[in-house]
Design a protein around this nucleic acid. Structure first.
Length: 392
DNA sequence: GATCCACGGGAATACACGGATG
DNA sequence: CATCCGTGTATTCCCGTGGATC
């Protein structure tokens, strides 16, 4: 945090409540413990997972639906509760000889955005399952897999592994994922989560069941926005009609809606206001490209790539006129100590996976015409989230 | 000594244009 | 006119190296 911000915060202390109470809960990347209004989805997932309560594994399944429909939110919440539940149950069995209730499997949630190699895949599953901590160097991928295998062979029921963000660019591709699962014993059941229709994805050949999660209905989305606002903002900071405006614009996509709320609140906060106004909501919505990539994807990029993006969002139009010029501007920044070659390659790679986009630029001059870099994500939101993460 | 992976660095390839050539 | 070729950029591709960690 810079000194001006510190001073401003002190100054505001006597002027009544600050608008943003808690950036963490307001963040569009955060999943809350009890997602609102997704009761039916929970029920359908529980139907699928029902065998678990008799001590057996459900078949493999595929959960799919449009972006911002709450798939990740529901599955993360459900899995953390279920894992807690079955851990408790296991400990009951250990301590009591009288009760002979069936044991439960473990539940592991993996985000493929953060688990991009086979090594990380086995590592994270094993880490979730084993009590001791697992080294992340000096051990081969194959050895990890073997350890995981013995761990599972000793497990009574097995494990249900949720793999989120399947088939997104820059994640393990579907064929590799199938191979990774093939390396595990049969007491593993997986729950893949993605956007593609089951017919469009090879993965569904391996899943017994598909579960559809639709986008939010308008009124539900208004509630989601209001709930988030009441948790992260001061009292009365967001009028109900403005929440509706956000929901209407977002058209069922909770992720977009929460991003818009975050940006609007941040702008209002910077301006020293304690209420979000319509004007800020409009600017916020305009700032979110359609379609836009999830900030979650961006924030799980390697640190130096994020650094490049952080510099990128501060460049002016002139400096974005071609990849070459942009590269120079970024690698000249004092915070960046990468060579210009690497910065340039990063920019191309991120264009490749849709984080930024290259559009045909000014074609006058010799040689192949340059392209210019455009963002595929809202800069204000990224800037704030990045800086917050840096601070902590 | 083993292992993983982010970086660096540069070679290979693609593309646009204009001028030369058939 | 159609095609080829040379030059200057842009873009993609690939692999070796070294830091960090066990």
């Amino acid at each position: 945090m810079d000194i001006d911000a510190r001073i401003q915060r002190r100054q505001r202390r006597d002027e009544g409540p600050v608008l943003i109470q808690d950036y963490e809960t307001l963040s569009p990347v955060a999943h809350i413990d009890e997602p609102s209004n997704r009761g039916p989805v929970f029920e359908r997932l529980l139907d699928h997972l029902d065998p678990v309560f008799d001590g057996s594994l459900p078949p493999n399944a595929y959960v799919y639906g449009p972006a911002g429909g709450g798939k990740s939110a529901v599955v993360t919440a459900l899995f953390s509760h279920l894992d807690q539940f079955s851990a408790e149950q296991r400990s009951v069995i250990h301590t009591s000889t009288r009760v002979k209730s069936p044991s439960s499997p473990s539940f592991v949630y993996l985000d493929l955005r953060e688990t991009q190699t086979g090594f990380e895949f086995y590592h994270d599953v094993l880490d979730a399952l084993a009590d001791e901590s697992i080294p992340d160097h000096g051990i081969s991928t194959e050895r990890l897999r073997e350890r995981l295998q013995t761990e599972l062979d000793n497990s009574e029921v097995g494990v249900v592994i949720a793999v989120d963000h399947v088939d997104e660019p820059n994640t393990t591709d579907v064929a590799d994922l199938v191979d990774l699962f093939a390396g595990l014993p049969s007491n593993t059941s997986w729950l893949a989560i993605g956007r593609a229709e089951p017919q469009e994805i090879v993965l569904s050949e391996y899943t017994a069941r598909s579960i559809h999660v639709d986008s939010y209905q308008s009124q539900m989305l208004v509630d989601v926005v209001m709930t988030r606002a009441s948790e992260g903002l001061s009292q009365q900071a967001l009028r109900h009609d403005l929440a509706r405006e956000i929901a209407d614009w977002a058209d069922g996509n909770a992720y977009d809606a929460l991003a818009a709320l975050f940006i609007a609140a941040d702008r209002a906060n910077q301006a020293g206001r304690t209420q979000v106004t319509e004007r800020e909501i409009q600017t916020a919505c305009e700032e979110i490209p359609q379609p836009s990539v999830s900030l979650g994807r961006i924030l799980s990029l390697p640190p130096n790539k994020q650094l490049v993006l952080r510099e990128l969002v501060d460049l002016d139009e002139q400096q974005r006129r071609s990849v070459t010029v942009t590269t120079e501007a970024i690698s000249d920044a004092p915070t960046v100590d990468l060579t210009s070659g690497t910065v340039k390659r990063f920019l191309y790679e991120m264009a490749e996976i849709g984080i930024v986009e290259r559009v045909q630029g000014d074609s006058r001059g010799k040689g192949r015409p340059p392209s210019r870099i455009e963002l595929r994500f809202p800069p204000t939101a990224f800037r704030r989230l990045y800086d917050l993460k840096k601070e902590s």
